[in-house]
Design a protein around this nucleic acid. Structure first.
Lengths: 142, 142
DNA sequence: TTGTCTGCAAAATATTTGCAGGGAA
DNA sequence: TTCCCTGCAAATATTTTGCAGACAA
């Protein structure tokens, strides 16, 4: 890890990520930090998010639509809702043997993997059910 | 699948993706198609890539740095090189049971997953070795 | 004829960078 | 004092969208 200075801004960014259990975007964090200190710029938030991720103090999660951040530091997987984009942790064990299999199959030197599940979150499941039932009423009414 | 018209442009985009075994970006395809027909616009290429992916004629692969496209249509995983960004297929079997595990653990209705391995491709492994040995020479020389 | 598709240009996003001054160590 | 870090603004990079005309069916 490179020489890092412990700045007020970096501290705020770290606290903002650690304070959330959803998986915020860089901009979510910017807004949060911004509410605490009006003078912090977007560039600083982006820079610090990446520095913190590089140092392993937070984790960067790549999902369709962009990058999210995670206060958890242990290896785990994620599920993303294909309706609303919500991201949740999926506490499955890390499968070391997959890395070996992939290395054997590709010739790459494999250091890690990420598993991203896609599906529909409980909230959207409910909305879809309600919507379907509304449409049912309309169809019968019309 | 929605009503689709079989346009010249769409055909060119499809052929461009199918003609490559690396995993091109949207812009790679644009350049390729462009070489065959000077009048095709970027917007058309982007639109068609997404339509083709939606229809399942090609696959969209999300990796750090953006979206890539894949001529393969079957479920499989990918490895991305963290040095040069090259993407390769990792022919591992699809693990259905993971989806069930994730659904149980999260309450999401899980429809699929994607596994992305990270590592270093054979070419970059070699470059790094050569570079290391060069530095060794310099160090000894200096 | 109908309605999808296209090219163009502008717009919308998302993220990064140059730079001069500021502040942690 | 050193040099990493910051805010600002401009620059990038990537993808999307409005629109009028083109063309497949």
């Amino acid at each position: 890890m490179q020489q890092r200075r412990n700045t007020h801004q970096r501290q705020l960014v770290l606290e903002a990520v650690q304070g959330r259990c959803d998986h915020p975007t860089a901009d979510d964090i910017y807004l949060e930090v911004r509410a605490r200190d009006q003078r912090i710029s977007r560039a600083t938030v982006y820079r610090n998010l990446h520095l913190l991720a590089e140092d392993g103090q937070i984790t960067s999660v790549r999902v369709p639509g962009g990058e999210r951040f995670d206060r958890r530091r242990d290896d785990h997987t994620h599920v993303v809702c294909r309706v609303c984009g919500a991201v949740a942790d999926a506490p499955l064990p890390y499968l070391d043997e997959l890395d070996e299999d992939a290395a054997r199959a590709t010739g790459y030197e494999v250091t890690s993997h990420e598993i991203l599940f896609e599906g529909i979150c409980p909230t959207c499941q409910k909305s879809l059910r309600d919507q379907a039932s509304d449409e049912g009423h309309e169809a019968r009414g019309a």
